[in-house]
């Protein structure tokens, strides 16, 4: 009671306590609903993936690994997963090669137009994927190119590179410059400084950016929908058509497995970075 201070008149105090309580309850209810809302669909997907019913329904009627067996026997799904994995891997490789030097330069160097370049490099985060997809399709077609996996990789680099740039920059900003100066004073060459001083410290940032970029690329539908070659459809496109046509329960198994892999990847990054590494600007 005293915490509310001596200034509050006694009669009002009770109402104030009630309002505070009401506020706290309301906040708690909203927050709990929010968190439940975040988790439940994922849980449902995981539970459904073990169900025995022939079509999707709830509650589950039993436990089986039938849908996982079906998934591993489906050449279409396996091939799509392979296409997705390779596309994402190349996307990340190219994204790191382009993005990391840029991130270092943006943090360490001062020049005119820096704000503009930063804005350009980070802008795809705020651009709608579906617009990027259509723009790329129009671009490739204007150049007379037929859609192919290399072109798909290039399209994916466009919207994944910003994550690599951003997370690398966040890490780079926290690296102590004095260490580099010390190395230089001791006669290290520029590339040696980079290789033995900067890079080891920067690596967690790169790893986080790469992991995030991989997930975003692997899960992308909106850009792939327009830029994926017709005969080599990545996993999200295949799942999209599976769901659009007949809501095949095998989708649940694919989704659950994908979630598990992503979770492992995230935990791996978390170990490298510490929990604070999740929050880009924290």
């Amino acid at each position: 009671m005293d915490a509310h201070g001596p200034l509050a008149p006694r009669g009002r105090q009770r109402t104030i306590v009630w309002i505070d309580l009401l506020g706290a309850v309301l906040l708690g209810v909203l927050a709990t609903t929010g968190i439940a809302c975040l988790v439940v669909p994922t849980l449902i997907v995981v539970i459904t993936s073990f169900d025995t019913q022939e079509f999707i329904g709830f509650p589950p009627r039993g436990f089986s690994l039938e849908r996982y067996r079906e998934m591993f026997q489906s050449s279409v799904i396996l091939r799509a997963a392979q296409i997705s994995a390779v596309t994402s891997a190349f996307t990340v490789t190219l994204g790191v090669a382009l993005g990391v030097p840029a991130a270092i330069a943006l943090v360490r160097r001062e020049f005119r137009g820096k704000a503009l370049v930063t804005a350009l490099l980070l802008s795809p985060i705020m651009l709608p994927g579906i617009v990027i997809g259509v723009a790329m399709l129009v671009f490739y077609s204007a150049l007379g190119l037929r859609l192919s996996l290399p072109l798909l990789v290039l399209s994916h680099v466009v919207f994944t590179m910003p994550f690599i740039v951003r997370l690398s920059m966040a890490r780079m900003e926290r690296i102590d410059r004095q260490l580099e100066d010390a190395a230089r004073n001791l006669g290290a060459r520029e590339w040696q400084v980079f290789r033995h001083v900067v890079l080891p410290q920067l690596r967690p940032g790169i790893a986080a950016g790469a992991a995030f970029a991989f997930l975003v690329s692997f899960d992308n539908l909106s850009v792939s929908l327009f830029t994926a070659p017709v005969r080599q459809r990545p996993l999200p496109i295949e799942l999209f058509y599976l769901m659009r046509f007949d809501l095949d329960p095998v989708v649940a198994a694919v989704a659950a497995l994908q979630f598990l892999i992503a979770l492992c990847l995230l935990l791996f990054v978390a170990r490298k970075l510490g929990p604070s590494g999740f929050m880009p600007d924290a």
């Binding site: 392979q82 390779v86 891997a89 190349f90 490789t93 996996l149 005969r231 080599q232």
Partner: peptide, 21 residues
């Protein structure tokens, strides 16, 4: 491994068994 997997995929349309869709 990545490079091999990639070449395998990128090259499927041009070589190997004929795919009929």
């Amino acid at each position: 491994a990545l490079a091999t997997a990639g070449c395998g995929l990128f090259g499927t349309s041009s070589s190997g068994s004929r795919e009929f869709v």
